[in-house]
């Protein structure tokens, strides 16, 4: 099998990767680029959301994206969410609300929540539950994640 080279914007930086084409974005992030914030919890089947990254503004399961599909895209991983050394308001609100337990689903859940708020700055509980439903969590029962997302959308976080 021949390798391919793809170029894309990763966390705001031009990046190019040479890889066999049958590998996924998740493999490349974790194995080639050392970005291990995206997790594999379901065995690369697109069922758990733990590998969620933002691709062109949308949350995607990076385990379902083959490397050939990322040419020219903009990708944000959890490692790229802080800006100028400042935590994103969702990172703060997840900590503040006690929404982080084991943390394995946290990066994916925060990135999903970011796209949710980008598209709908003040979601209802129902909209949050719909939006988060692709991100499995066994620890929290989701209540505190929903609280965290409200906390972020309503402001009022301590700095």
């Amino acid at each position: 099998m021949k390798t391919i080279t793809v170029s894309f914007l990763l966390n705001g930086k031009k990046t190019s990767v040479t890889s066999l084409p049958n590998r996924t974005l998740l493999d490349v992030l974790r194995e080639d680029l050392g970005l291990t914030g995206a997790k594999d919890a379901c065995g690369g089947e697109g069922e758990c959301g733990a590998c969620t990254v933002i691709m062109n503004g949308n949350p995607v399961n990076s385990c379902m994206i083959f490397i050939g599909q990322i040419e020219g895209t903009q990708i944000t991983t959890i490692e790229g969410l802080m800006e100028k050394g400042e935590f994103h308001r969702l990172q703060k609100s997840f900590v503040e609300a006690g929404a982080v337990q084991c943390g394995f689903c946290t990066p994916g859940a925060i990135l999903t929540a970011k796209t949710l708020l980008d598209n709908n700055p003040h979601p209802t509980d129902h909209e949050i539950r719909e939006g988060l439903s692709g991100n499995l969590c066994r620890c929290t029962g989701y209540n505190k994640m929903i609280d965290a997302i409200h906390l972020a959308e309503q402001g009022g976080l301590d700095d």
Binding site: G37, E79, G98
Partner: peptide, 14 residues
């Protein structure tokens, strides 16, 4: 939780 910050940034090493 003190471990929560690293878990929200992807720095926590499983």
């Amino acid at each position: 939780r003190k471990d929560a910050w690293d878990k929200t940034t992807g720095k926590a090493l499983y």
